[in-house]
Simulated scan of single mutants.
Amino acid sequence: MIDGLIAGRMYGYAEERSGSAGSVYVTCKVKAVTDHGETVICNVIAFNDLVRNTLLTLTDGDSVALSGALTPKVWTDKQGKVRPVLDMLAHAILHRVRSGEE
């Protein structure tokens, strides 16, 4: 596990789910761009109430920064190219307020 910070844009919308023991959590994807212009998808899960509730207010393309436990992984796309991906258990969130919400 790596304690990390990612910044990027929401890729789709956050979804609220329930665990078998009744725990509530939110999952979403964040698209981040590397220094080399490549895109990295971060699969996010959040149990913290503030992080969950804030993620649920965001829409596709909104800017967001998350802090938490990162796990780097790889996946192979349809063309056989190996690509990086991150899994994050988010503990804290910062997002940009859109015009009109200030």
Rank of each mutant, 00 (worst) to 15 (best):
E38P: 00
D49G: 00
K73D: 15
V40H: 03
K73C: 06
V44L: 02
N48G: 06
N48C: 06
C28H: 07
S67R: 09
T39A: 15
C28K: 11
E16V: 11
F47K: 03
T27I: 14
Y13W: 05
D62K: 04
R52T: 08
T71K: 12
G19D: 10
N48L: 03
T27V: 15
D62G: 03
N43V: 07
R52V: 06
A65Q: 08
L50G: 04
T59R: 07
A14M: 08
V26L: 04
D60G: 12
V33G: 01
I45M: 10
T39M: 09
T54G: 02
F47Y: 12
G22W: 01
A65P: 00
D60Q: 11
V26D: 00
P72Y: 02
G22Q: 07
K73L: 10
T39W: 07
H36T: 12
V30M: 03
P72V: 04
L50K: 15
C42E: 05
V64D: 01
L50C: 04
D49S: 14
V40T: 04
L66P: 03
D60N: 15
V24T: 14
T34S: 13
A32I: 14
G22D: 08
T71D: 03
T71C: 05
G37Y: 13
G19M: 10
N53C: 02
N48R: 13
C28R: 01
E15P: 02
T39L: 13
N43R: 05
V26P: 01
L50D: 09
D62R: 11
V74T: 15
D49P: 14
Y25P: 00
S18Y: 14
G37S: 05
A69C: 05
